[in-house]
Design a protein around this nucleic acid. Structure first.
Length: 813
RNA sequence: GCCGGAAUGGCGGAACUGGUAUACGCGCACGACUCAAAAUCGUGUUCCUUUUGGAUUGAGGGUUCGAUUCCCUCUUCCGGCACCA
């Protein structure tokens, strides 16, 4: 018998699949379509480790099963080539980013092909190809022409290490998500995308798609929609109004101060001469603080009195106006009404600065202790005509009453901020804008796209807040498309999230030179049916691309309101020691090494998938590989034993049951993405086949059917060995073109069942009976079974509960 | 602080709508083959007591004939957000 040596079979089949174009998706096929998308990687010099392969292994299983189930499957792969990782790699190795990208793509393709994934390679592209980013620029101009892309001089998050501005989404706990450097604030003129215009749509759209709640909730939290009111406070003896945002207008009678952010535009005007020195000193001190310092919630609250007083529009009381940095300038109006009795932050502030604390809400059950700040709903008091009424019900009434006097209006605020879209780096799509002294920012005409990234000798980022492109005079200097006068190109580039915000659409029509994709193909392929990727992209890439797609839908460019019908997030594979795999720690498990060590891609795919539920973060276990390899060896031996045997002529009910049950279970598991339990089912199945083989001499026809069925089920998981064994048992043509096997329900059920006997809640024995035996007969059998023991001796049975074919529960005393 | 998830043998994990907890794999032990080892095959493997038995799904309570599963309280860990009014 031939031994199972993966090296001998895997490259052979990979070559054959490529030659026969086995996994090509067909445009306009009459079969139902299924788009299985896995996030495309950014090509870097580091190569991919086993953790990366989890995502593609899972996607490949689904894609292959769907193909066998008769779908026209699109399972594409490309490369997210622009961005910091590639640029940093290029700088470090003193090669051009173009070269770094092309080298990395070559090695990534080799790694992916070695795993036997069924990607349609004819649709592959990389986002740094001018033929691709031409359309990224074209789509950006749609935002620009709709007023959704605008320039703004704002204090951006600046990473001093990467030397670039960042979006809010890229800042984690005050640090850059990529390099962990604390970010600084830097005043820069930036391109922004008005994602906040789509805040409601991004929340509401979630109820139309199939996302796990942990992903949907995270996006909802990130967007942070909160309903409340803007209320105007007039300033005593001055013709000035301060507008505050609050979600609790029902506490307005308890507002005993106004607090403005230090950056609030009215601070200067409200500061009295007597207080000027103190206020200026405070603002200076605030500016000196880092973002991380300012965001520390445990920090003692500080502030300063402005000298002015406001009038509470509900109570008419004169209340002081303070300036304090616990009020944020970027949220709401940058000013709040302080209600110390019912807000913990305001309480702490009021205690420190000796402000009045007026309680106006008490819990309906009235068991509050004076020590705590009551922030819940309750009954209003000290609130004039609202006394005795429920706070939750009066909230809208108060807004209405104040609105009649022109003092308030309903308002919804979002935590989400507009998307800072400029990067001061070389390796990105040039923003296709020309700055004309007369016409301002002008779009590059469509026929002049792409605005190609010039090839340069020096592409290192600068400290000036300008992109390296700014130094290339003959690229920067151009003429205005409107009037022909000398003008300058925009020198900032787009963030690495730009190309990935629409890449799935390009797979539908990857070679189109006249449009980002043909409308007929967009209509045919529609939304992505399943999108698998990392949890870390929930509030970055997934949110961004939903925003782009929703805008395109409004522009009539795409047929569906949402890009992804369903989304799943796979868990991270950690190193065996439980820490993250990283090149610097040297704990990376390289798939190439695993394959070369003789385990092969199939055993690796199984090990990755069998490790844990797909969505769970879990440490890698090198030993698991031995287990899955042994399993494949046992399968190999089983099939070859059959091929080399003569075969008998026995019919076998056991065999029928084993196979039908396996098909049923694997079917169920795959529907629920229970990949690890599906593999356990295969292992049980092969163990069972060994067991019955030793017992009976089955007919060849039955064995052939059994083995063919098992191989078809295994084909999506282990494509090489199943193809090899499919051939070995005498089949022509690829197993991957076979139909997914069906099962006979009748053979998945045992005729003889084991019924557990429970006495007072404890299992005391079991009886075997025919399926469908009635309660009386089972009770008789149970009494007989337990006659040898004394559980029932001298006891009276007071209650009998029978769960048919499963369990008999007796209550005795 | 807020939102989400989790806790089951030595380890990764399984268990359908409440119905025989520990499937499958790893590891370990013993046996077969071998001069020997590896590989392979077989047997066993939750814990305590081993005679009967008893305990056990992070802790404590509850509902139920019966709870890993449902409810309440709490602990720990992981992910996300965080002075967002």
């Amino acid at each position: 018998m031939k031994r199972y040596i993966p090296k001998d079979i895997e490259p052979k089949w990979q070559k054959k699949w490529a030659e026969t174009n086995l996994y090509a998706a067909e445009d306009f096929s009459l079969k139902p379509k299924y788009v299985m998308l896995t996030e495309f990687p950014y090509p870097s010099g580091a190569g991919m480790h086993v953790g990366h392969m989890r995502e593609y292994s899972l996607g490949d299983i689904v894609a292959r099963q769907k193909r066998m189930q008769g779908y026209n499957v699109l399972f594409p792969m490309g490369f997210d080539a622009f961005g910091l990782p590639t640029e940093n790699y290029a700088i470090k190795n003193k090669i051009s980013p173009q070269q770094a990208t092309s080298d990395a793509v070559t090695s990534f393709v080799q790694q992916l092909k070695g795993m036997g994934f069924s990607f349609d390679w004819s649709r592959s592209f990389n986002t740094s190809d001018p033929e691709y980013y031409r359309w990224t620029q074209w789509l950006f101009l749609r935002f620009f022409k709709s007023g959704l892309a605008y320039q703004s001089e704002i204090a951006v998050n600046w990473c001093p290490f990467c030397k670039t501005g960042l979006a809010n989404e890229e800042v984690i706990n005050g640090r850059h998500e990529r390099c962990d450097t604390p970010v600084e604030k830097k005043l820069l003129k930036q391109w922004m995308l008005r994602i906040t215009d789509y805040a409601d749509r991004l929340v509401d759209g979630l109820s139309t798609v199939d996302y796990p709640s942990r992903i949907a909730d995270q996006q909802i939290n990130w967007i942070g929609r909160s309903k409340g009111a803007e209320i105007n406070f007039s300033i005593d003896n001055q013709d000035v109004t301060i507008t505050v945002f609050t979600t609790r207008p029902d506490t307005i009678f308890g507002a005993t101060a106004l607090v403005l952010a230090p950056e609030h535009p009215l601070v200067e005007r409200l500061t009295t001469t007597a207080q000027k020195e103190r206020v200026n000193a405070y603002i200076k001190a605030t500016e000196a603080k880092s973002d991380i310092e300012r965001q520390d919630t445990d920090r003692e609250k500080t502030g300063v009195f402005s000298g002015s007083y406001a009038l509470n529009p509900a109570s008419g009381e004169r209340i002081p106006v303070f300036i304090a940095d616990y009020v944020l300038t970027g949220y709401g109006t940058g000013a709040i009404m302080s209600v110390p009795a019912h807000d913990e932050r305001d309480h702490a502030f009021a205690v420190k600065y000796d402000l009045k604390i007026i309680e106006v809400i008490k819990p309906s059950d009235d068991k509050t202790t004076a020590a705590t700040v009551f922030t819940g709903e309750g009954v209003m008091f000290n609130s004039g005509k609202y006394d005795g009424l429920a706070s939750s019900e009066m909230r809208e009434q108060i807004i209405k009453d104040l609105a009649e006097k022109g003092l308030a209006k309903e308002k919804i605020n979002y935590r989400l901020r507009d998307w800072i879209f400029s990067r001061q780096h070389y390796w990105g799509e040039p923003i296709p804008i020309i700055h004309c002294p007369k016409h301002g920012a002008v779009a590059v005409p469509e026929q002049s796209l792409p605005v190609e990234l010039p090839k340069v000798a020096h592409f290192e980022p600068t400290d000036t807040g300008e992109s390296p492109l700014a130094t290339i005079a003959d690229w920067v200097n151009t003429t205005c498309p409107e009037c022909g006068t000398p003008a300058k190109r925009e020198t900032d580039t787009m963030p690495n999230w730009a190309g990935s915000s629409w890449y799935y659409l390009r797979y539908f029509d990857p070679h189109n030179a006249n449009a980002f994709a043909d409308r007929k193909l967009l209509d045919y392929w529609g939304a992505v049916d399943m999108y698998l990727g990392g949890m870390e992209h929930t509030t970055l890439h997934v949110l961004y691309s939903r925003f782009w797609h929703e805008f395109f839908y409004d522009q009539g460019l795409v047929p569906t309101p949402e890009p992804y019908s369903a989304r799943r997030g796979q868990g991270i594979i950690l190193a065996a020691d439980g820490t993250k795999m990283s090149k610097s720690k040297g704990n990376i498990v390289n798939p190439n090494e695993v394959i070369d060590n003789g385990y092969g891609a199939d055993a690796l795919r199984l090990a990755i998938t069998f490790l844990a539920p797909y969505d769970q973060t879990t440490p890698w276990s090198p030993e698991a590989l031995g287990g899955t390899f042994r399993f494949l060896q046992r399968l190999w031996t089983l099939v070859h034993d059959y091929v080399e045997s003569d075969g008998g002529d026995n019919e076998s009910d056991d065999l029928k049951t084993i196979i039908n049950r396996t098909i049923y279970k694997v079917d169920q598991d795959l529907m629920a993405y229970g990949f690890n339990t599906a593999i356990a089912t295969f292992m049980e199945c092969v163990n069972d086949l060994y067991r019955v083989k030793a017992k009976d001499n089955f007919s060849s026809i039955e064995w052939q059917w059994a083995i063919e069925s098992v191989l078809k089920l295994l084909a999506p998981f282990v494509p090489h060995i199943s193809e090899e064994l499919w051939e070995a048992i005498g089949n022509e043509g690829s197993i991957h073109l076979e139909e997914w096997p069906g099962y006979d329900q009748a053979w998945t059920i045992d005729q003889e069942v084991t019924v557990a006997i429970q006495i007072n809640g404890k299992i005391r024995g079991t009886v075997k009976v025919q399926r469908g035996t009635d309660q009386a007969a089972v009770l008789t059998a149970a009494k007989q079974e337990l006659s040898a023991s004394n559980y029932l001796v001298g006891q009276e049975i007071t209650r009998v509960i029978y769960v048919p074919d499963k369990l008999l529960s007796l209550v005795v005393k």
